[in-house]
Simulated assay, not measured.
Amino acid sequence: MIKLLVIDVDGTLTDGKIIYSYTKDDHQEVLKESKEFDVKDGLAIAVWTKKLGLKAAIITGRKSKVVEHRAKELGITHLYQGIDNKLEVLEDIISKEGILYTEVAGIGDDLNDYQMLNRVGLSFCPNDASEYIQEIVDIVCKNKGGSGAVREMIEYICKQYNLEEQFLKAWL
């Protein structure tokens, strides 16, 4: 049974694009960052965490207030940003949660996800992930990063582990 989802952000929860802009605030230039998230991914994550009561973690290489806001909004219990060694962080989460690697599903798209995806019980990547990642994961999603790949992963897990009925009834 999968008890924890581990999710990368850029290229997985988003399409990988980062938009920077400058605005004037009190006569100073302020750097603004924006990212786009797919509402379908968000709804599935919220069902996973808030309705099914299961755990989710974001482990990402970059730091962003936008990601912090999104994680809180979706009920994600573990948020780690600015991480170089994602496997090391995952080991810490697994220890804190008292679960096994076989009870973890992960999704990522690039080389900094490689070790983590190689270790989890069930691994996924968006269909536009690095070729190196596509070669090692269990499932290459039909959807691209930022376009429903995380939703696809969650629906797959729910079908495989007899959670589909609970998943569908979550909003009834």
Rank of each mutant, 00 (worst) to 15 (best):
G98V: 02
Q28D: 11
K17N: 14
D110W: 03
D109C: 09
L43K: 10
E68W: 09
P126H: 12
L74G: 00
I136Y: 04
N143H: 12
Y132G: 11
G42T: 00
T102A: 10
S130H: 14
N85S: 13
K72V: 02
G53D: 09
D25L: 12
N112S: 13
E33N: 07
K55M: 12
K40I: 01
T14I: 14
R62K: 13
E36A: 13
L13N: 09
I136T: 07
L31R: 13
L90G: 07
Q28K: 15
A105H: 01
S21G: 14
A129T: 12
T49I: 06
L74C: 05
A105C: 00
K17R: 15
K65V: 12
S21P: 11
K24A: 03
T49A: 08
D25A: 01
V140I: 15
D109W: 09
D110M: 10
K86G: 07
V66F: 03
L117K: 08
L122I: 13
N127E: 09
N118G: 10
K55L: 13
Y20G: 02
T49D: 06
T49K: 05
W48L: 05
R62F: 02
A46R: 08
K24E: 14
L54W: 04
D38N: 15
P126L: 06
N112H: 05
N118C: 06
E73R: 01
C125K: 10
I19L: 13
K50W: 01
I99F: 06
L79A: 10
G145W: 07
S95C: 11
T102M: 02
L31M: 13
Y132M: 12
I83M: 11
H27A: 10
V89H: 09
L43E: 03
K24H: 01
A129E: 11
A57S: 02
E103C: 00
L90P: 04
S95D: 09
A129Y: 10
G145Q: 02
K142C: 01
H78R: 12
A56T: 07
G61S: 10
V104D: 05
P126C: 09
E88W: 03
L31G: 00
Y20K: 13
R70M: 09
Y114V: 07
Y20V: 06
V89N: 06
Q115Y: 15
D41I: 04
L90Q: 01
V30L: 12
H78E: 15
E135D: 15
V47F: 03
